[in-house]
């Protein structure tokens, strides 16, 4: 073998290629931000009165529960899993909460019970996935049916909420001028911030990414794969419980048929926000963008006075485009190796 001078291993990293090397995984999220900007600007140009403080504030208010669900879902998808139970858990905790409040229990008891109830179902799914080696799709499908069934056990009809402190979450508006934010919006923002911080700065968060990258490697690096994986589903369940609280406050009632298909909206938002379904790549803030894209499309369509079914058609097409973009990125990075 020839003896050679030690060659320079790293490719010369000029500005742009360095940026790409560092943030290759943020590309889909960047694309989502671009789409959101395009939607907002386009709607403003078309309608002339779209980008108003009122409208934008309502966007957050209307989708606070989706944002909360999306945070939990992002964690699950990052590990390479999926949680189909979120819509049903939302309905179950919502109706359970409404029923408990109606029977005179204090919100100080009801709220923790809702969150813990969601977490408990998440725990069940997580244990099934981690220790019984059940596919996340199947395990969370079981969670979906279980929670929906439980919701109907609690009540077949919608239950109105009279508790002032729960309704306060929705009716209070802190604001400047026409801008406002409700306590539910604040909850969503806090959950979002906590999610983003956890993923970036804690070992738990980095382990979530590591599991999505390669579970075996993560284990060899001494990361606690089992605990993290279970915890991810628990967090998603707790987020669903919290989402149930926010939705109950938003609609002023618990309803056992709430959130049918919501899990799919959430997954769509997370994917549009740039999280790879295969795991390991994605951001919580991307999921926020995904929810906002979803919400904006919905608002545009109601502005236009068109059928809401167009929302689903548009989301479907966007999803298609994004999955193709992601696939191109994945293939490209595989080829570069």
């Amino acid at each position: 073998m020839t003896t050679l001078e030690p060659p320079v291993v790293a490719r010369p990293t000029a500005g742009l290629s360095r940026l790409v090397d560092r943030h290759a995984s943020a590309l889909p999220t960047a694309a989502a931000v671009g789409i959101l900007a395009l939607l907002l600007v386009g709607a403003q140009v078309y309608f002339g009165n779209f980008l108003t403080p009122r409208n934008l504030s309502a966007l957050l208010l209307d989708h606070a529960y989706l944002i909360i669900l999306a945070v939990g879902m992002t964690l699950v998808i990052l590990t390479g899993g999926i949680d189909l139970s979120v819509g049903s858990v939302l309905a179950f905790t919502g109706i359970l909460g409404a029923r408990m409040l109606a029977s005179g229990l204090s919100p100080a008891v009801v709220v923790p019970v809702m969150i813990l109830g969601g977490a408990a179902i998440g725990l069940m799914i997580g244990v099934l996935v981690q220790y019984f080696d059940v596919q996340p799709f199947i395990a969370s499908l079981a969670g979906l049916f279980l929670a929906r069934g439980l919701a109907f056990v609690v009540s077949l009809q919608s239950v109105k909420v009279q508790s002032s402190s729960i309704l306060w979450l929705q009716s209070t508006r802190f604001g400047v001028g026409d801008w406002y934010i409700t306590p539910t919006g604040i909850i969503a923002v806090v959950v979002l911030a906590a999610g983003a911080f956890t993923l970036a700065y804690t070992r738990f968060g980095r382990t979530v990414y590591a599991i999505g990258g390669d579970e075996q490697s993560a284990r060899l690096m001494g990361l606690d794969v089992a605990r993290t994986r279970v915890l991810v589903y628990v967090v998603s369940g707790a987020c669903s419980g919290l989402g149930g609280l926010v939705l109950t406050a938003y609609s002023g009632a618990g309803y056992p048929r709430n959130g049918i298909g919501t899990e799919l909206d959430v997954i769509a938002a997370v994917v549009i926000g740039g999280t790879l379904l295969s795991g390991g790549v994605g951001y919580v803030l991307g999921s926020l963008v995904g929810v906002l894209v979803y919400g904006t499309i919905k608002t545009i369509i109601s502005f236009k006075g068109a059928e809401q079914s167009w929302t689903q058609i548009t989301i479907g097409m966007l999803l298609l485009v994004f999955i193709v973009i992601q696939q191109v990125i994945v293939v490209r990075s595989a080829r570069r190796r």
Partner: peptide, 10 residues
């Protein structure tokens, strides 16, 4: 010598 913040897969 390597940019330690670059993604390994690249």
């Amino acid at each position: 010598s390597l940019d330690v913040m670059s993604q390994l897969g690249t």
